[in-house]
């Protein structure tokens, strides 16, 4: 493989990591509070609020049911309004966030719901406010599960970002599509696929490792 190609692959890797990194960050900034709201406003939550829970649930379900490739095209006007263009890794972040935030919200919700109801009741019996329960009980107690969710979230976003390659989304996806699909360059295709697999493995294993080693329920 010539050095120009290798350089392109390195650039692709970096672009992919940039897209995934920024998307994960923004998706959690939006999805985390939404997940908390979903959990606490549930009918068994610490602050049951049925209308809010229902409305938020419906919006998230709608966004989650649109296949990513269609969402990618559908939000193009919105993307152009924000970034000024619809191609390249910067622009791809917009649809990636729109697809990932609801996903993150659901992951966070399910992690928080795993926290033992008895522990929450104990915190309430000690006079904790709702905010204190969220900050000092729900989030810390769910931490290992949230980290595992984060690893799954990153790998899902990585998959989405590669899909964006079909519409010039940048990164490894675009290289795979341009060389492997349009030019029948199987070797480059194979290398990009391998790179994607390696990146997924690294994030997944790292997430599991951190989760396991910070979880105090397991005695080491």
């Amino acid at each position: 493989m010539e050095s120009r190609m290798i350089q392109e692959l390195i650039k692709g890797c970096l672009e992919t990591l940039y897209m995934v990194g920024v998307t994960t960050l923004v998706a959690y900034l939006i999805g985390m509070p939404l997940g908390v709201i979903l959990c606490v406003t549930d009918k068994n939550g610490i602050c049951p609020l049925r209308p809010v829970n229902l409305l938020l649930g419906v919006i998230i379900n709608i966004l989650r049911s649109v296949p990513f490739l269609i969402l990618l095209v559908a939000v193009m006007p919105f993307t152009r309004a924000i970034v000024g263009k619809t191609y390249g890794s910067g622009a791809t972040i917009v649809p990636l966030v729109i697809a990932a935030a609801p996903f993150v919200a659901r992951m966070v919700e399910s992690s928080l719901k795993e926290v033992d109801a008895g522990v929450i009741e104990a915190a309430e019996s000690m006079g904790s406010s709702r905010l204190q329960i969220i900050w000092k009980v729900l989030l810390p107690e769910a931490k290992p599960s949230l980290i595992v969710g984060g690893a799954i979230g990153i790998t899902t976003i990585l998959g989405y970002s590669a899909m964006a390659g079909f519409v010039g989304g940048g990164g490894l996806g675009t290289i795979a599509v341009n060389y492997g699909y349009y030019r029948y360059d199987n070797q480059t295709m194979l290398v990009t696929v391998c790179l994607l697999v390696v990146i997924v493995q690294v994030f997944q294993e790292l997430g599991m490792f951190i989760a396991k080693h910070t979880d105090r329920r397991i005695t080491h």
Partner: peptide, 19 residues
């Protein structure tokens, strides 16, 4: 909430913070 700090509770399941 402040009154509850003067009436504590213990439980069958202990309910300690696991982390």
């Amino acid at each position: 909430l402040r009154t509850r700090q003067r009436m504590s509770m213990i439980f069958q399941g202990f309910n300690l913070l696991a982390q």
